[in-house]
Simulated scan of single mutants.
Amino acid sequence: MKSLVARKKQRGISFIGLLFVAIVLACVGVVVAQVIPTLIEYQAITKAANKAKEGNTVPEVRAIFDRAQAIDDFTSVTGKDIEVRKDGDKVVVSFAYDREIHLFGPAYLLLKYRGRSS
């Protein structure tokens, strides 16, 4: 009889625990699904900045950036928003912008993107 009373402790997760973990993972998945397109857009803007640094004058750099913007179809940064300067004999194109993602109610996720041509 003693062996029936002295059971091993059960291991594992309860149904309520499983439900809680599933809800947390679903919420994280929704946020990640909203962040990924902004990361893809950031990569396209960085690619456009690297392409634009081939110009020699500021209007030429902005025009190259605007053409790349039309091709890659992003709207967060335009040719007017970029900063163009020279470091020695190299042209450096830099940009900065913010993206807000609405989470729920009054809560937002603010993503601050900054970059420059390499």
Rank of each mutant, 00 (worst) to 15 (best):
G88Y: 04
G115F: 01
V58H: 04
I16G: 08
A63P: 03
I23V: 12
V58T: 09
P37C: 01
L109V: 08
Y108N: 15
L19Y: 06
G79E: 00
F20M: 15
V30T: 13
A33F: 07
N50S: 05
D73V: 12
P37V: 05
F104T: 13
L4W: 02
H102W: 10
K53H: 13
P59T: 10
R7P: 03
E83G: 09
I13E: 01
S76A: 06
L18V: 10
V61R: 00
G79H: 03
D89L: 14
I16E: 07
I82F: 04
I13G: 14
R7F: 02
K53R: 12
I40P: 07
I64F: 00
I13F: 12
V28K: 07
V28Q: 13
V31D: 14
V93G: 00
V84C: 03
A48G: 02
R11E: 03
S118N: 10
V28S: 12
E60V: 14
H102D: 08
V30M: 13
D89C: 12
S3P: 04
V30I: 15
K2L: 07
V93P: 02
D66T: 04
I71E: 07
Q34S: 12
I16Q: 14
G29Y: 11
K47Q: 14
Q43V: 15
P59A: 14
I13S: 06
V93F: 06
T46N: 09
K51P: 08
S3R: 13
T57H: 05
C27F: 15
Q10M: 07
F15L: 15
R116F: 01
